[in-house]
Nucleic acid binder design. Structure first.
Length: 167
DNA sequence: GCCAACGTTGGC
DNA sequence: GCCAACGTTGGC
């Protein structure tokens, strides 16, 4: 392995993934076999590139509830399988079907994630906005809609720490 | 390649 | 339910 690949293999990266709890909540993840699920249905090229090229086994994930009453980070997960073709794109009955995707050259990718911890309490979006140290988070940028996005280690650690303290 | 129209996301 | 912001589509 060339040295830069070796370094990559040793480096853990951090991500945030959004899910609408009415579709798939952190409790749903907790109830999956092995508390593991494939992260299907991402249909945005920027997020696709992350799923296909960047996100590696062992990377850690903030599980975020979006489009709900109290948007919040709910817990953490670990990437348990790196990018592979999202088979729902080839299923005409799926909401995620994409007639223009070529099976020889799949357009959409997914990873598997496994629950790591459910926070004792949600760390709300409002709370994240109050922390000066989190100002740079992709999630907090105006108009930011990426459903899979990079997070800095410092940001990840700050949020995990917040979750262990009373609101 | 431009850009208007449309659809979606997601906080509020 | 509203609406701002964004991404995609498709005519030209």
């Amino acid at each position: 392995m060339p040295p830069e690949r070796l370094l990559e293999a040793m480096t853990i990266n951090y991500w945030l993934m959004k899910s609408e709890p009415t579709t798939f909540s952190i409790d749903d993840l907790a109830n999956q076999p092995d508390q593991t699920t494939c992260w299907e249905g991402v249909r945005n090229y920027q997020a696709r590139n992350l799923l296909r090229d960047e996100i590696q086994v062992g990377d850690r994930v903030l599980f975020y509830h979006s489009a709900c009453k109290v948007p919040a980070v709910m817990g953490t997960a670990v990437v348990s399988r790196s990018g592979y073709a999202d088979h729902f794109q080839f299923d005409p009955k799926s909401n995620y079907y994409d007639a223009k995707s070529d099976p020889e050259n799949p357009r959409w990718y997914m990873v598997d994630i496994t629950l790591e911890s459910e926070f004792e309490r949600p760390v709300t979006l409002a709370e994240l906005r109050e922390r000066a140290g989190l100002k740079g988070m992709v999630l907090l940028q105006k108009g930011s809609r990426l459903s899979v996005q990079p997070v800095k280690k410092k940001e990840f650690d700050t949020i995990v720490k917040l979750a262990s303290k009373p609101a």
